[in-house]
């Protein structure tokens, strides 16, 4: 994977070569995210942590921004991490990745540390990534000489502080900052930020951006492995059902993840060196081989949309139809070609 450009500090360094695992039986048993955490039952973000660590393996450093995956995971004296792990500030996932990778690179180049490819993964929530830390992630994706993965686990709220609306929360969702009231039913009128596509489109030198969902665990792990192997800074955006914030029985976490894909709310795609590929059920939706399920089926399974009336559901469905029928690149790039073009 190594690639050399100019002499000196702009040089690319080698990555580990982590091939895709062909099916669940090929996945090793060893865990690097182990016991010692206390996330909610059915927490898909915790599931993502486990898959991410397994996919990366032992020669990995993981940085984690403030949020549930910090507070509920790493209580002093009871860390679940079997690989080196360090906290970073809420808006610092990008900076943590850059700093860690830059430190390793400098020390290895200058002969101060054994030269070997070490994976660097920096994770953050949607609040930390899509809101507060967006500029730092953007900057990190421009520094192509550093190898790392920024993984944004999106539970669609500032969950750790008691479920507040973020720029990644869905339209109308009931959170503690957007509770429906006597006069106003819809307090969050923002449409969910299109983070992965924004970062892919805005950083053409970034070799890898993908969306995943832990309802497809092997697929999610293989995306992590690909991101770590390809070289340079990479970004993965994962949609993680959160029983506490979305208000449903924890047993349905995987099912809700699948429904998000099947209704078209959460398109699965990757942008590999500038080339877009849809995968899984999203590809079949795109090709017309699979009919999107009505979004109502997804919304009405969650307490956070319990206040919706038909008008809200119709509005939501209309927006999703637009995503697939009117966007320049369905589900990904939200403009249509203007008349002049």
């Amino acid at each position: 994977m190594s690639e050399t450009t100019v002499e000196g500090f702009g040089e690319f360094v080698e990555t580990q070569v982590l091939d895709a695992w062909k099916g669940p039986k090929k996945v090793p048993h060893e865990e690097f995210f182990t016991s010692g955490h206390r996330t909610c039952q059915g927490c898909e973000s915790a599931q993502l942590m486990k898959l991410m660590a397994k996919a990366a393996g032992p020669r990995t450093i993981i940085l984690g921004a403030t949020g549930c995956m910090y507070v509920a995971n790493t209580t002093y004296y009871s860390t679940p991490w079997a690989v080196p792990w360090m906290h970073t500030q809420l808006g610092s996932a990008g900076s943590a990745a850059t700093g860690t990778a830059a430190g390793l690179k400098a020390l290895m180049r200058k002969g101060k540390m054994k030269d070997e490819p070490i994976n660097v993964i920096s994770f953050c929530g949607d609040g930390g990534g899509a809101d507060m830390g967006l500029s730092a992630i953007s900057a990190a994706l421009q520094h192509t000489e550093y190898n790392h993965l920024i993984l944004m686990y999106d539970n669609e709220s500032y969950a750790n502080t008691d479920i507040q609306v973020s720029g990644s929360s869905p339209y109308g969702a009931h959170t503690t900052f957007s509770a429906p009231g006597k006069v106003q039913r819809i307090m969050n009128r923002r449409w969910k930020k299109n983070t992965a596509a924004m970062l892919a489109a805005g950083h053409p030198d970034c070799k890898y951006v993908a969306t995943v969902c832990t309802s497809n665990p092997v697929d999610a792990m293989n995306h992590v492995r690909k991101a770590l192997s390809i070289g340079g800074p990479t970004f993965i955006h994962s949609l993680d059902p959160c029983p506490k914030g979305w208000d449903y029985d924890p047993r349905y976490s995987h099912e809700l993840g699948e429904l998000a894909i099947e209704t078209g709310i959460w398109p699965l795609y990757e942008v590999v060196e500038g080339e877009l590929k849809m995968h899984g059920k999203s590809r079949r939706i795109l090709r017309g081989q699979l009919k999107r399920k009505p979004v109502e089926e997804y919304l009405m399974r969650q307490g956070r949309f319990a206040h919706f009336v038909q008008e809200d559901i119709d509005y939501f469905q209309g927006k999703i139809d637009q995503m697939w029928e009117e966007w320049l690149i369905p589900g990904v790039i939200p403009f249509s070609a203007g008349e002049e073009s």
Binding site: T60, T74, T75, P84, W85, M86, H87
Partner: peptide
């Protein structure tokens, strides 16, 4: 990775 510690837990 040779010294898999956790830094700055909560």
């Amino acid at each position: 990775p040779d010294n898999p510690i956790t830094i700055a837990p909560q």
